[in-house]
Design a protein around this nucleic acid. Structure first.
Lengths: 221, 221
DNA sequence: TAGATTGTTAATCGATTAACAATC
DNA sequence: TAGATTGTTAATCGATTAACAATC
């Protein structure tokens, strides 16, 4: 175990490990090696060992990692061994879809409040949660000890919502709006805009499907 | 301009540049410097200049970048100057939400077909698209020249759907299911699983909210 | 001309991978 | 014991940033 600072790349892999370990556990597999893990997850085994070793000596030489033990450890590292309440701001289609994942997040994280600024939405029910007006956001966040906010409002409202969330004492934001949010440096923001994903995917499409491009052929790439 | 291979990090920033440039254009701003860009997007100006220089000499020394010209160039690089048809597989809540973004993707990418394997869904309308059965996937993909597939089915169906998409001639996949897909190396896959995002966010929450942890205080991190 | 800003090279920083002693 | 596999150090690889000549 070291006490260097952990890079974001490492932290982002932990949930991937966890997911697969949960799978193994369901299949009643007791032990797994970094090699098997690497093969299934498309990662270098050395990288996996190194990632885990940042946090402790979780494996046994010659044997591998105990599945249950490693699950427990990663859950603790990710703070998924405590209940984390989440607020969803934006009760549109996407918000609706995300709130359904409560079942999936079950034990650990839970969307416990939904907000929207559009009056006709207020009071509507989304999976047993009642949509609340923005005016109640701060109070609800403090009362329920909500620590993470998910933003699924239109672009032009996103920054404003972020400001309100921050002012209400939220610690981290998952932002689905296609904008770069400005927030204090101690607030963690992850972008989850799928249009950006789609557009970068397009780059990797095969060339040459355009009809009659008026350039010299293949001078780029 | 060089002809090195372009890293994924660079490609992922291009849509971010594009988004902001579109903004500037709407506000009728004609020119922008790497410095302004960097400030707004939270990136190093040198990095932005370098990113763009991979693809050509788009700027003018002493002046900056012409907004319209740069938009045109990035759109071309990302192949967003041709129409790209997209298939959505999985007509659940999330699929529903994504299909709404057609308006947003407008000019360039378009979800032109929706599939589901659950009989009661077949024939239902989702934003003017009729949900088709999986059996029609291959034919529709070929007929419509669909090149990208979005997977929004439950975890355990995702790999199967990916296999079918690949067999149907798709070139790239955006996968919302929380699994690592196995695909041929010439198929580009981007993961867009928001549960992973949320879990890694939890890592960055402030410590010490757990009541009475039975460990030595702050020996980690 | 003076000031601004690019494109690019060189320096730095950080992340991934290989290799291997320790050990189950 | 022999084989397997970890944790970790060293080597490699790649990405970011600084610096600056070229030039608008």
């Amino acid at each position: 175990m070291k006490s260097e600072k952990i890079s974001e790349a490492v932290v982002r892999r932990l949930p991937v490990y966890l997911r697969f370990l949960n799978d193994l556990q369901k299949r009643e597999i007791l032990t797994v090696s970094s090699q098997e893990l690497g093969q299934k997850l498309d990662l270098n085994p050395a990288q996996i060992r190194k990632d885990l070793a940042y946090f402790g000596d979780f494996g046994r030489k010659g044997i591998g990692y105990d599945v249950s033990y490693l699950i427990e450890k990663i859950r603790h590292i990710l703070k998924l061994d405590q209940q984390i309440n989440v607020a969803l701001v934006g009760a549109g289609n996407l918000g609706h879809a995300l709130s359904n994942y409560n079942a999936y997040l079950k034990d650990t994280m839970k969307i416990t409040a939904v907000f929207d600024s559009y009056p006709p939405k207020i009071g509507q029910k989304i999976n047993s949660l009642v949509v609340q007006p923005m005016e109640e956001l701060e109070r609800t966040i403090r009362e329920q000890g909500i620590r993470i906010g998910i933003i699924t409002v239109p672009d032009h409202e996103a920054q404003n919502v972020a400001d309100i969330l921050v002012a209400s004492g939220i610690e981290a934001i998952l932002n689905f709006a296609p904008v770069i949010l400005k927030t204090p440096s101690d607030i963690r923001v992850h972008g989850a805009d799928f249009t950006t994903d789609l557009q970068s995917l397009a780059y990797y499409l095969r060339d040459g499907k355009e009809e009659a491009a008026d350039e010299q052929p293949q001078n780029l790439n």
